[in-house]
Every structure is written in C-alpha cells, then in structure tokens.
Amino acid sequence: MDKGSVPQDDSPTYAGHHKLMYAVDEQGRYTGVQSSGWDVEAYATLLAVTEIDRLRDDAWHRARDGRTSPLEYHMYRKRMELATLAATTGHWRWRIRRHFHPQRFRKLSDAVLQCYADVMGMTVDELRRLPQRPDV
C-alpha cells in the first residue's frame, strides 16, 4: 500500500483516535503512517456492534414479557454471548441457559448471582433488575 492510499476516513469507530499502518513512500521505503479510519473496516465493526445490540434489545423485550431472565439481557449488554459467559464463569452452557428461565432465575442463590455479577462488573442488585430502556 502506498502512503497516499492509507485511508483517512475519520471513522466514528475510532472516536477521534488514529491507528498506525505500514505503507511505502515514493522511494518504496516502508514507513509508519497514521490513519483516521477506513470506511470498509468501520462498516464491519459497526455491523458487529449492531448485531450484538440487536440481540440485547431482543433479550430486553423478552425479559420484559417474562420470557427470559434479566441475565440474558445483561449478558448481551456487556457484549458477551453464551460462550463468553460460560468461559468467564466456568458454568456449563446448559446451566446458564437454565438460568435464563425467569422463575429459576428468581430462585438463584446470592452466591450464583454474585458469580455472574463479578464477571460482568456489576452488583447483584443491578443483575436482578431490568432497566427502563435496553440501551442504558
């Protein structure tokens, strides 16, 4: 890639930061060049973020209607999915899936809830509750 073709697209995903890229100058020498973003990459990033936000919103609606527990909503809100939550808590996936049942979730002991709260960086109280809006 030529120095001149290093994209400078001011991508919102970079939040004003610049990344270092390696590109060749007019003499063919490699040099580090800062980039303010690339539309192509920003689209890919945003699509992934949108997808997990969609899952989060969907879980919020189901939790509100009593079809899942707040745990599923909080999992997506913290940008996790079942595999990540299983790996961080050390629980089996099927066990976590059971905890998505609203009734079972309500009966969980503080110790189990604390384990979830710890890996998600929140309090047990917050974990039990569903916020007013999904995007808080």
Partner: peptide, 10 residues
C-alpha cells in the same frame, strides 16, 4: 474485522 480491526498494521 479479523484482518483489519485490531492493530494489524493493515
């Protein structure tokens, strides 16, 4: 994303 997003230098 795997190719570009997190610090690959392009």
């Amino acid at each position: 994303r795997m190719q570009e997003e997190i610090g690959t230098g392009g």
